[in-house]
Amino acid sequence: MNAKEIIKLNNEKRKQLTEENEYYYSDMLVYIRTCANKSEQQTEEVLLELLEHLLKAQEQGKTAKDVFGKDLRAYCDEVIEEIPGERTLKNVTFGIYLVVNLISIVMLSVGIISYAMHTLFDLGPNGIIFPLGTGLVIILISLASLSIWVIAIFKWIKHSTFKAKKPKKWTEFFRLWLMCVVFIGIIVATFILMPEFGMRITISFTTFIILGILLYITSILLNKKFRITK
């Protein structure tokens, strides 16, 4: 049984929890899952064990606090401490997958839209033209802000667990919205503000789109090989 199958089983079984236990357990689940650099397989196996134990205990009227102790966060820290850390390689392949996938989608959409603009409306040059230096710097800044954004989201999710009072839905939404706006703002700003430098490069539409397709196929193959999203 691989980690993805265990997650599915966990999702099914979690429905049997009482409202109170579901409240505690989902916090534990989020808290333990957001700890990076731990083996996903071991993490999911222990999460399923905790869930099954809680389901059995709840038949006797016990709550998560009776089973795992009053301080659930401290208990989770104890569990996390003992989960073997072998996830680094997985995190690297996941990062590469994300970058290749993102770049291929950007290339495909830019390529197809510019091609359509050029042939249908006679707008823009015949081919993709960009200064090499500027292009590379923009890609690097986008990727850096993307990783900071992902880390920030993770920290935020982890921080939101084990609160006596759950924050209101709309404040949560507003914070998430703000994080997205800042992220998109940074990327748009670099596009507008970045001065042009480096050699000007011209690539024909066909080459550009074919490159995009090749990268996209690479990302699909990576996903298949390392079972990233399946």
Binding site: V46, D66, G69, V79, E82
Partner: peptide, 13 residues
């Protein structure tokens, strides 16, 4: 406490 076996099981593994 019932839950205390799980960190130990992880360590023994």
């Amino acid at each position: 406490s019932e839950g205390s076996i799980y960190p130990i099981l992880l360590r023994l593994q």
